[in-house]
Computed example of a mutant assay.
Amino acid sequence: MENIVYFNQITWRRNNQEILKDINWQIKEGEQWAILGLNGSGKTSLLNIITGYNYPTSGKMTVLDQLFGRTDLSELRKSIGYVSSALDRFQDTIQLESVENVIVSGKFASFGIYEDVSEADWRLVDQILSDLRLEYLKGKKYSVLSQGERRRVLIGRALMSQPEILILDEPCSGLDILSREEVLELMDDLKENTHLLYVTHHIEEITEAITHVALVRDGELVAAGEKHDVLTDALLSETFKIPVQVHWDSDRPWLTIEKRK
Rank of each mutant, 00 (worst) to 15 (best):
M1C: 06
E2S: 13
N3G: 01
I4H: 04
V5P: 06
Y6T: 03
N8H: 14
N8F: 02
W12K: 07
L20K: 05
D22A: 09
E29P: 00
G30V: 01
G37E: 09
N39I: 00
K43Q: 06
I49E: 04
P56W: 10
T57H: 12
M61T: 08
D65C: 10
F68N: 12
R70W: 09
D72Y: 07
K78V: 05
Y82P: 01
S85M: 05
A86V: 08
L87Q: 14
R89W: 04
Q95H: 10
S98M: 07
S98K: 13
I103K: 06
I103G: 04
F111K: 10
I113V: 12
E115K: 15
E119P: 00
L124I: 01
D126W: 00
L132A: 08
K138R: 15
K138V: 01
L145S: 11
S146T: 14
R150P: 07
R151V: 15
R151C: 09
L166S: 03
I167R: 01
P171C: 07
P171K: 08
S173R: 11
S179V: 10
E181L: 11
L184D: 11
D189P: 00
L190P: 07
N193V: 07
N193A: 07
L197T: 00
V199Y: 03
V199C: 03
T200R: 05
H201W: 02
E204A: 05
E208N: 13
T211R: 04
H212G: 08
H212I: 06
R217Y: 12
G219N: 03
K227D: 05
H228T: 14
T239W: 11
F240D: 07
H247T: 13
H247Q: 12
I257G: 01
E258A: 08
K261L: 09
